[in-house]
Design a protein around this nucleic acid. Sequence first.
DNA 1: AAATAAATTTAGGCAAACCTAAACTTTTAT
DNA 2: ATAAAAGTTTAGGTTTGCCTAAATTTATTT
Lengths: 219, 219
Amino acid sequence: MHSTAEENYIKAIYKLSGGGANAVSTTALSETLETKPASVSDMLRKLSAKDLVHYVKYYGVQLTEEGKRVALKIIRKHRLWEVFLVQKLHFTWDEVHEVAEQMEHVKSELLIQRLDEFLGHPRVDPHGDPIPSEAGELRQEEQRVLSSLAVEQKGVVCRVKDSQPAFLQYLNKVGIQIGSQLQVVDKIPYDNSLEISIDKNRSVILSSDVLEKIFVINP
Amino acid sequence: MHSTAEENYIKAIYKLSGGGANAVSTTALSETLETKPASVSDMLRKLSAKDLVHYVKYYGVQLTEEGKRVALKIIRKHRLWEVFLVQKLHFTWDEVHEVAEQMEHVKSELLIQRLDEFLGHPRVDPHGDPIPSEAGELRQEEQRVLSSLAVEQKGVVCRVKDSQPAFLQYLNKVGIQIGSQLQVVDKIPYDNSLEISIDKNRSVILSSDVLEKIFVINP
DNA sequence: AAATAAATTTAGGCAAACCTAAACTTTTAT
DNA sequence: ATAAAAGTTTAGGTTTGCCTAAATTTATTT
Ligand SMILES: [Mn+2]
Ligand SMILES: [Mn+2]
Ligand SMILES: [Mn+2]
Ligand SMILES: [Mn+2]
């Protein structure tokens, strides 16, 4: 298998290239990985020998198909662990990254299959980023702002655009988190607020301010 | 912090020394760690320099107090992850070890605290081995065979002495697993079988054969 | 008490993943 | 079109953790 260092490089290349589209420069990598450019050159030669990247000296790297496959696997693991940490262990969004950065390197197919099952096959991580499928497909699902839903329409919370503690505490209080199943119960035209049911349990009225900060995908 | 290699050595020394009691030989370590004796000598010099072990050339190693503390922390993490894998992800006893061997090296105090909480502060791992407390204390609790309990007495399943699939499947069927809360409801003197309630839910009658294979600790 | 056997350490190397300093390419500015 | 600046690679080191082969120490025989 691949070393932790190799995996971190692959993932960084994937992200900096925008999913494998563009070539990535040595300095860009050295910055995100917090190493020196010389070390990056070193590693790129190795990754190239393993056919994980196309590397043209002085002009940058790109992932090969195999490289992309590896990248998506690591990203899948990273994001599943993030979901676990937030939903099961009650980590906050800003606490998860460092830990997930380590857990993503644990090697076991069974583990990640079972974890996915245990979490109910989540489609987005706590930051609203999509989780690649077991087959390695990453479909960026259409995200709509909650304020745009019509009465009766449903959505699953995938992203919140405000990380101030006060706002997050408010969401916590009303019971909204990433993954919550929402449905618009009623629309109050006076101030554009909506009555929203949460996980088929309670229901609350959310102001248009709040509605603008919550994003959902189709259920 | 300590590297994965160092942590594995510390843990191996702890286990081979029987909790820090006896000195451990280079060859013993090389066997359990699947490295050559020369590599062990190398590492022992390093661990000694870090004051994690007392090392007397040609005569073996022992953990220092600090070394013992480190060992118990790793063992705590290993066993908590084993509980997670079995209870939450439905791994079997024999599937957990390799994965826990990796997860035990993830660094995060918060993670392990929250995991412990999430699992309900378990006291034994799926093999019946005790889980060191957060303070680093390992109390081997008195294990009694289920057949020895009197009517009304309670116990928590901590170990099962038969790993044949047929037996494990039987336990699975009646709903007994490590951590199950049992209470003796009635005693049938005719064949020494017992009626046992499981997790305050259902109750079953277990034959004396089965009772001899299940061990419990005090609730 | 030697001699032999077994266990252990030391010496010298290697690969991974990093580093600094120097050399080389490519880009930008004059 | 050259020169300077910026980016990148190469050369030569370091540390970690492993290896083999040789030397050394301890244990066991005779
Ligand atoms: Mn990582
Ligand atoms: Mn994320
Ligand atoms: Mn381990
Ligand atoms: Mn165990």
